[in-house]
Structure formats: structure tokens, C-alpha cells
Design a protein around this nucleic acid. Structure first.
Length: 517
DNA sequence: GTTAGGG
DNA sequence: CCCTAAC
């Protein structure tokens, strides 16, 4: 099939920096298509410092063709990788020094059952609406079921998005843009503390979630009643990174780094677990809790969790809507995605549609910087009970992140980053408009940008507006990446045609009115 | 939720 | 890109 992209997941069991990465090849044509198949592609542990982890996640998905080397390279130049952060949390396993020898495999039992449940995509306009009209919408809501078949050539069956969105909404997964709003109390002190104690990146490789303890050590000292901990490694919450195969290892590293930084940058709090049990009372002393030198056999764990409304009195008030559920998700409870919920979309797209599809794919794949999630993980998540811990974040977010509340007005909304349309996108837009006209932006979106999460139909409408304008002005006055004249010509032609069509329509509807005029 | 337009 | 009236 069409394009192929690589996804690298630094999953729950991945260690920072040397986290286990999952790289898989997407062979589906439509990213949004839930029927897409994914296949793991082993990149090797050396190539990018990533090792593989058991694909526990993709249960139900038959390992599809692995790296399809013949896959087409993305058409569009916009290859910015996509990074999203599915909500999840993980532990930092701290083991008493005496346990060093057998420090492997002492995570919480449930951890082994973990499967990758990428957080659902979020960022729907609904959220915006739900929260406040000023918040960003990441993607327009798409109607479920079939695509408007106005042009009969789209045969792909879109899955029920409503249910999808419903599910994600309930999971409280917020895009980073909004996320920062509940970042009020800034990075948890815990976080800093831990960091200051040094987080060692452990190169140990995990073969499965079960061995998630590998590389984690703690030192307990009985001297002067002090409990000393040494967190040798700290695992970050599940990250989801996606970038084109053409991306360099360097960029991969960068993405991972950004992802990690973003996560640590805020919105997280640390949970303490002792023997797999959550220690909720923050006022208890270590001794009372059982964390002491007398307790060296116990496994102390830390988990990264999203801040919750339960969290200590917010230093700032009024961030309610963004608070995650107080019933802090237990990192342990994760369920494998229901297998077989796949809808195989038939993608016998007509040539004409190829472009759009291609763009769709590409867009979604690379350009998703601001896209908090990815379709490819939708399926695995929608029916998931995955505990949402870390709000979805994106690279884009990094640019706006750490800003903590600026004023009482916690409603300061971050403007979306500017993302100029690439020629390929313009091409796709023009093609779609030629076919659908200028009054059906939603359809245009669905047709040519369904996977470009950051392009809303309003964006497309706006872009068309500017394209028309651009086409009318002299080349000297144009700015930005030059759009081929050929395209601009098509813009004018299409615009003229559809404008005329609309006029005719109106005339039909209100002839008398027109006559009067 | 979409469109259409002004900002 | 954002905001919003209007539908």
C-alpha cells in the first residue's frame, strides 16, 4: 500500500533516553482508518539507541508486512514528526540496595499485563467548546460512519468517531495547549527532587513490561535514621512518537528528548508506591509508611501521574476544567485493546484521490507536531480503560509549555503555532475544492486533510481565501513558499467556477428576489 | 457542528 | 489563525 511511516513508541517500560522503542510500520493508507495494520520493524538497538520491547500492545493486530521498503516516500515535504503522549504512567522502581541482585522483575505484578494503550486522540473542538470557546481545537469533529460520498469515489469507511470521541472525552485527555492551564502549580517539587537526586538513564533493555524493574536501584541506609534513595532510572510515562522513516536518528533522539522534557516539564506529580500499593497519605513519615532501612525488602516505587484536583491545594485556583480526574488512575490497571475491532477499510482509491490520500497520510504522519494524538492509536485506545495520566502533549506544546499560569485569568489561551501550507497541501486543497466546491469545507477536510489533524476545515477555508488572494496579486507581492503558478491558476479557475455555481444556486432558490434586484 | 466573513 | 454570527 501507499506510504509507510515509522512510529517509535517509547512505551511505559521505556527508559528515558534509552527507552525501549517500538518502531512499527504503518501500512495503511489512511491513518485514520482504524483498520490499518501495523507491523513492528526492528531498527536494532544500535542504530538509534532503541531496543525493542514486546509488542504486547498490538494484540489483535496481525503483524503486518514489516518494513515495506518499497513504500512510497511521503509526497509532501512537511515531515515534521509527530509526537503525542498517550496518557499512561509508569513507575520508577526503587529497590533497596540489598536487592540489587534480584532487582529485576519486582515491579508491580500488574505491570506485566500492561499493554500499550496509547492515549486516545483528543483535541477535538468539543473540548474547546466544553471548556470554553477560546480554547484550541485541534481537529474538527468528524462525523462518523461513511464519508460523504458526494463524490462517490471514497470508499473508505470511517469508523464511528463519535463513540471514539466520547471515549476519549471520558478519559480526560487534554491537549497540551490546554494542559498548561492546569499546570498551575508548576512542576511538582517531587519532580525536582527526584531529578536533583539524579536520574540515571539505564541502558538496560527490557524485554517486557514484566521486567520493568531492571536497572532501578535504590539505596537505603539505616544510618542516622535517614532513608536514602537513589533512583537509578526513572521511567517516563508512555510516549508516542511518530516520525517518517526518512527522519534521521538525530531527529528521533530529539523527539524523544522533547517528549520527555515536555512530560517532565509539568503536569505531573509523583506517586509513591510501596509493594505495589499506593501510598496516599502525604503526611505519613517514611517510617510510618514502612519505607525505612528495616524494610529493605520492600519495593518502593514512584509513579508519574497527572496532577489531579486532589492534588494539594492548587497554588492557583480556577483551573478546574483541566484537572484530571481525582481518582488518580492506577498505573496498574491497563487492559489490552479489544481485538478484532478493526474495520478494514477498502481503499481502492481512484487515482484522483490518491493525492488527497497521500497527503492525508503524510500530513498526519509528519505534520502532526501539534497533533496530540494519532489515529493509529485511536483504535487501541477507544475502548480502552487505559488510565489517563498524562495529558496528550505534542511538540508544539513544547513551545508553549512551561508557562504556568500567568494571572488569575487562568484562561490565557495559547495561539496555535503557525503552520504554513506546503505546496503539497495546497495541491491537495486545490484538488479537493475543484471537486467539491468552495462551500463544503468539511468535506474538503475529510477528503484531503482528514489526517492532517492540525488543519481544520476553517483552516482550509481560510487557506483557500488566501490562495485566491495570492493568485490575484502579482508574484512580487507574494510571500512565503512560492506556490506554483499552475496551482494558482487552478485556484482562480475553480474559484470562478464555484462562485458561479453558487450564484446559480441562489438564483434558483430565489428567482423572484433576484428579479426584484 | 458548519459556514462564511471580518479581524 | 482567531472569533463569531448565523444557520
Amino acid at each position: 500500500m501507499g506510504t509507510l511511516a515509522s512510529k517509535v513508541e517509547v512505551g511505559p517500560s521505556g527508559y528515558m533516553g534509552y527507552g525501549n522503542c517500538k518502531v512499527e510500520a504503518e501500512t495503511n493508507k489512511f491513518m485514520k482508518d482504524e483498520s490499518h495494520k501495523t507491523a513492528k520493524v526492528q531498527l536494532g538497538t544500535r542504530a538509534d539507541g532503541c531496543s525493542f520491547e514486546d509488542p504486547l500492545v498490538w494484540d489483535g493486530k496481525p503483524p503486518a508486512v514489516s518494513s515495506d521498503s518499497s513504500a512510497k516516500a511521503p509526497l509532501c515535504g512537511d515531515h515534521s514528526p509527530h509526537i503525542s503522549f498517550p496518557a499512561s504512567q509508569d513507575y520508577v522502581n526503587v529497590v533497596s540496595r540489598d536487592d540489587d541482585e534480584n532487582s529485576s522483575g519486582c515491579t508491580h505484578p500488574n505491570t506485566t499485563k500492561r499493554s500499550f494503550r496509547p492515549a486516545p486522540r483528543i483535541g477535538d473542538r468539543r473540548i474547546r467548546k466544553i471548556l470554553a470557546s477560546k480554547y484550541w481545537k485541534v481537529a474538527p469533529k468528524l462525523k462518523d460512519a461513511t464519508l460523504s460520498n458526494t463524490d462517490g469515489d471514497l470508499k473508505t469507511v470511517y469508523h464511528n468517531r463519535n463513540s471514539y470521541y466520547r471515549s476519549i472525552r471520558s478519559e480526560r485527555n487534554y491537549p497540551i495547549k490546554k494542559r498548561r492551564l492546569f499546570n498551575c502549580s508548576s512542576v511538582p517539587n517531587y519532580d525536582r527532587k527526584i531529578r536533583s537526586e539524579g536520574i540515571c538513564v539505564s541502558p538496560e533493555r527490557l524485554t517486557g513490561a514484566s521486567s520493568s524493574v531492571a536497572g532501578s536501584h535504590t539505596s537505603f541506609q539505616s544510618r542516622d535514621s535517614h532513608v536514602k534513595l537513589r533512583i537509578k532510572s526513572f521511567r517516563v510515562p508512555e510516549l508516542f512518537i511518530e516520525l517518517p522513516e526518512t527522519a534521521t536518528v538525530g531527529s528521533l533522539k530529539r523527539r524523544v528528548m522533547e517528549a520527555v522534557n515536555a512530560i517532565l516539564g509539568g503536569g505531573l506529580r509523583v506517586g509513591v508506591l510501596l509493594q505495589g500499593k499506593k501510598v496516599k497519605d502525604d503526611n505519613k513519615t517514611l517510617l510510618q509508611t514502612g519505607i525505612s532501612h528495616d524494610n529493605q525488602k520492600d519495593v518502593l516505587g514512584f509513579s508519574l501521574e497527572p496532577k489531579t484536583s486532589q492534588t494539594p491545594p492548587p497554588l492557583c485556583s480556577g483551573d478546574s476544567p483541566f484537572m484530571l480526574p481525582s481518582n488518580a488512575p492506577q498505573p496498574l490497571a491497563r487492559y489490552p485493546p479489544a481485538p478484532g475491532v478493526v474495520h478494514q477499510g477498502t481503499c481502492d482509491a481512484v487515482p484522483e484521490l490518491q493525492m488527497a490520500n497521500a497527503v492525508n497520510f503524510i500530513e498526519s504522519d509528519h505534520d502532526s507536531a501539534p497533533s496530540p494524538t494519532d489515529m493509529s492509536i485511536d483504535k487501541s485506545t477507544k475502548d480502552s480503560k487505559a488510565l489517563v495520566t498524562v495529558p496528550a502533549m505534542s511538540v508544539e506544546a513544547l513551545a508553549v509549555v512551561p508557562v504556568h499560569r500567568k494571572s488569575k485569568r487562568s484562561e490565557i489561551v495559547q495561539r496555535r503555532i503557525r503552520r504554513p501550507f506546503s505546496v503539497a497541501e495546497v495541491e491537495a486543497l486545490v484538488q479537493a475544492v475543484e471537486k467539491l466546491g468552495t462551500g463544503r469545507w468539511r468535506d474538503v477536510k475529510l477528503r484531503a486533510f482528514d489526517n492532517a489533524k492540525h488543519r481544520t476545515y476553517v483552516d482550509l477555508k481560510d487557506k483557500w481565501k488566501t490562495l485566491v488572494h495570492t493568485a490575484r496579486i502579482s508574484p512580487q507581492q507574494r510571500r512565503g513558499e512560492p506556490v506554483p503558478q499552475e496551482l494558482l491558476d487552478r485556484v482562480l479557475t475553480a474559484h470562478a467556477y464555484w462562485t458561479q455555481q453558487q450564484a446559480k444556486q441562489q438564483f434558483k432558490q430565489q428567482p423572484e428576489t433576484c428579479l426584484l434586484l
